[in-house]
């Protein structure tokens, strides 16, 4: 029983020792779509999965969206605003696009270019959604928009839309926990 604190300390230490790669570096994309300066890696879930378990000091805000999803597009500016305001404060916004693979070149790339999105965009190409939805969160029904906010201390999942104020409040509550 007396060994428990020591054990916990050890576990903690080993977590802290894990690699400090950024989300993009940890990715193994199936392919990379590119249009001039806009680059979008496309992954299956296995390739994307590392972004949900980073152990560095960053707070990750991961939003599932698609160009055709009205409530998603409506809240995108709030994620961009958050990214802009907190990018130097250890917050990283990642926009995971669920656009159909055949729409990446005709819809997603032009959209990202036109809106000049600054947050990192990754395309998820994995149609067997039943195999991975619960790996994101067991409470996710599969509807988008959906968002995961986590750091090494806390993790929250939201199957809902946000206003900027709501989003910032959630992020701050996790950072300040």
């Amino acid at each position: 029983m007396r060994l428990l604190p020591l054990l916990l300390l050890l576990v903690n230490f080993s977590f802290a020792q894990q690699s400090k790669t950024t989300a993009t570096e940890g990715l193994t994309p199936l392919k990379v779509y590119q249009d001039e300066s806009v680059k979008i890696p496309s992954c299956d879930f296995k390739g994307l999965e590392p972004i949900f378990s980073q152990s560095d000091a960053t707070t990750y805000v991961i939003n599932f969206w698609a160009t055709w999803c009205l409530p998603c597009v409506k809240e995108l500016p709030y994620f961009e605003q958050l990214n802009e305001k907190y990018k130097d404060k250890n917050v990283k916004v990642i926009l995971v696009s669920m656009d159909m693979p055949k729409k990446v070149e005709t819809s997603l790339l032009p959209f990202v270019k036109k809106k000049n999105l600054q947050s990192e965009v990754i395309h998820l190409d994995d149609p067997d959604a039943n195999a991975w939805i619960e790996k994101v969160d067991k409470d996710w029904s599969g509807a988008i928009p959906a968002t995961v906010i986590y750091n090494r201390k806390e993790r929250k999942f939201y199957e809902r839309s946000f206003t900027y104020e709501e989003l910032e409040k959630e992020v701050l509550s996790i950072i300040n926990n």
Partner: peptide, 10 residues
């Protein structure tokens, strides 16, 4: 039961 990605009901 299975899960799928879909459009949220409006």
């Amino acid at each position: 039961t299975t899960k799928a990605i879909g459009c949220s009901i409006k």
